[in-house]
């Protein structure tokens, strides 16, 4: 099976209106920027996006927001985006803000076949409203459920033709968990190398299965 596609247009062509997407990245670090630009171009709408942040006004997910293609955001922090705040306060955009560690673990759980887990984060706050509370070792915890997505779109530093990935520094962030939690995962890589070049990662990352994959030169960020 050939996992490499020629361009970003082919990679995202399965993404349709009203789908749920996971997008890797923290701030503007390790975000699949070319895939996001392509989604703006093809104009899919009604999207539910699971991503730690929402980009800035003119970069990353901010571009999809400007274009009103996002129906709902599931994030932990959206402070860098004025358009986001405007759409949220006016009620145009549905927003689910959840603690960052819970978001990461919910993505991990989704990819790992764990339907739910207990965490102390958010107990006694509005995050806990409507959630089951249970004491473990005398400490209250809340039940959080796994997240999954129709497509996960991740960004990696290097990828090989078999879909093994290497992440650079803090550009790793949410990308590995999301890569596991998408029904289909698209990896945007800065450098595509032959399979034998990442043989070491094969042992570490062999659990990942990439159905679609493409090479696109990374745009230099500020």
């Amino acid at each position: 099976m050939n996992k490499v596609v020629d361009n970003v247009g082919i990679a995202v062509e399965g993404i349709k209106d009203n789908m749920t997407l996971m997008l890797g990245g923290f701030g503007l670090c390790g975000i699949p920027e070319n895939s996001i630009s392509e989604l703006v171009k093809i104009g899919v709408s009604g999207l539910t996006c699971i991503s730690n942040n929402a980009g800035v006004d003119d970069f990353g997910l901010g571009l999809l927001l400007q274009n009103k293609q996002i129906k709902k955001m599931i994030s932990s922090y959206v402070g860098e985006n004025d358009e986001f705040e405007r759409q949220m306060l006016s009620g145009e955009l549905e927003v689910d803000l959840i603690p960052q560690g819970s978001l990461a673990e919910r993505c991990r759980a989704g990819g790992a076949g764990i339907p739910a887990f207990y965490t102390p984060a958010g107990y006694g706050t509005e995050v806990a409203e409507g959630k089951e509370v249970r004491d473990f070792n005398g400490k209250p915890h809340i039940l959080e459920s796994a997240l999954s997505a129709d497509f996960a779109i991740v960004k990696a530093w290097k990828g090989d033709t078999e879909g093994n990935l290497v992440f650079k520094a803090t550009a790793r962030n949410f990308n590995p968990m999301m890569a596991m939690a998408g029904k289909i995962t698209i990896a945007e890589v800065e450098e595509l190398v032959p399979a034998e070049h990442l043989i070491l990662m094969k042992f570490i990352r062999q659990e990942y299965s990439f159905n679609e994959y493409f090479k696109e030169r990374a745009l230099k960020r500020e």
Binding site: R108, F167, T170, N173
Partner: peptide, 28 residues
């Protein structure tokens, strides 16, 4: 500065000898 090396406040940083990187689930 390296755009792929930032802190939680999204500022670029450096690392000390022996630093390690990990995903967000491992971090939490």
């Amino acid at each position: 500065e390296d755009a792929d090396l930032i802190n939680a406040g999204k500022q670029t940083i450096t690392t000390m000898k022996g630093a390690s990187f990990f995903d967000s689930a491992t971090s939490f």
